[in-house]
Structures are given as structure tokens and as C-alpha cells.
Amino acid sequence: MLGSKKLNDQQLVDAIKNGDKDAMVQLYKDNGSSIRNYVLKNNGNADDAEDVLQDTCIAIWEKIRNNQLELKAKISTLAFAIARNQWLKRLNKLSKNVQMDGINTEKMTAESDSFQFDDKKKVQEVLGMIGEKCKELLTYFYFDGYDMNTIAEKMNYNNSDTVKAKKHQCFKSLQEQFLKKYSRQDFI
């Protein structure tokens, strides 16, 4: 779809809503140089720049999929703003980590909002414990924020009740599998 044509902002939003990952690739290409330059000019290295760029693309993807994005400004402006926030957050985290000298007391005492997903393999392993269908459904629900009707449509289920039951089943299964091997502490 992308190959030859370059999408305008509205087309890009629509494409991402339809789950077109190549639209995200266009996002990556269009905003690559400005975001990279920004990170590199602000004490980041090439790896940091790549991370911020990818995270920005994914953040925009998530916002669009969750209907959290209103096209008030150009997507490039939005992308730069998101990248900037992400980089500042990272810098903050870095300086905090340095200050705290490795002992993250804040996280130990209160169940804070953030979990630690530095180990990608662990994340993938947990989601690998359930079937593909379950993973797809749960992703639609939790990541894309689709309602039951949309999921039923996407996955060819009869109605939203079927999806609800299926979703419950899948989640319980994931929880069981997860608790067999891990505890919450593994991701804090």
C-alpha cells in the first residue's frame, strides 16, 4: 500500500486505524531525521535516537488506534512533541537513577504505575504462553482499546458476548500461566 504513494496525514491516520503497519513505517521515515537530530543534539547517542524515534512512532500508533488523537496539528509536529517528551523523560529517569544509586525505594514501597519491561524476552515469553488467537484478542482489547463489537468484527466472532467470554477465558489462562512461572515482583 505504501510503496509508491505517500499518505497525507488523514490517510495516514486511517491506514493506522486499519492496522496498516506500513503507515507507521512512513511515520518513521518522515520524522526520522528531525527526531534523530533532536536527540543527538541533546546529549543522546545514535542508539538513543533510534529508540526515541521508534517509541514515538509506536506512541502515535497507539494514540490513533485508541482514538486519542485529534488531528489538530500536523502529525510531524505531534511526532516531534512526543519525541521531545520521551527524550526528556528518559533523561530524567537517567539522572534519577544516578541520584538514587541503584536503590529504587519509590518502586519498592508503593505499587507504582510503572513496571519494568527491560527484558524483552521475558515479555515475549509470557505472551507466548497462550495461543495466537488469545494473544490477538487480548491485544485488540488492551493495546488497541477496541470494544467487544469491533473485536467480534475483526475476528469473525458471532457477537460481543462471545468475545467477552473468549476474552475472559484467554485472560484467565494467561494469568494462570504467568503465575506458574513468575510473580509481579519480576517486573517491578
Binding site: 503497519k21 521508534q54 512512532c57 513496571f115 515479555v123 494473544k135 491485544t139 509481579r184
Partner: peptide, 20 residues
């Protein structure tokens, strides 16, 4: 449940990153 939902999201992000 919060952790699991976050894990589901994170896994989806990783898949998108892999695509990128």
C-alpha cells in the same frame, strides 16, 4: 491484572518495533 495488561501492550509494542 494491571501487570498482565501492561505485558500485553508491551508485547504489542515489541512486535511493532520488530516490524520497524
Amino acid at each position: 491484572q494491571k501487570l498482565l495488561s501492561e505485558l500485553i501492550k508491551e508485547n504489542a509494542r515489541l512486535e511493532l518495533k520488530a516490524y520497524l
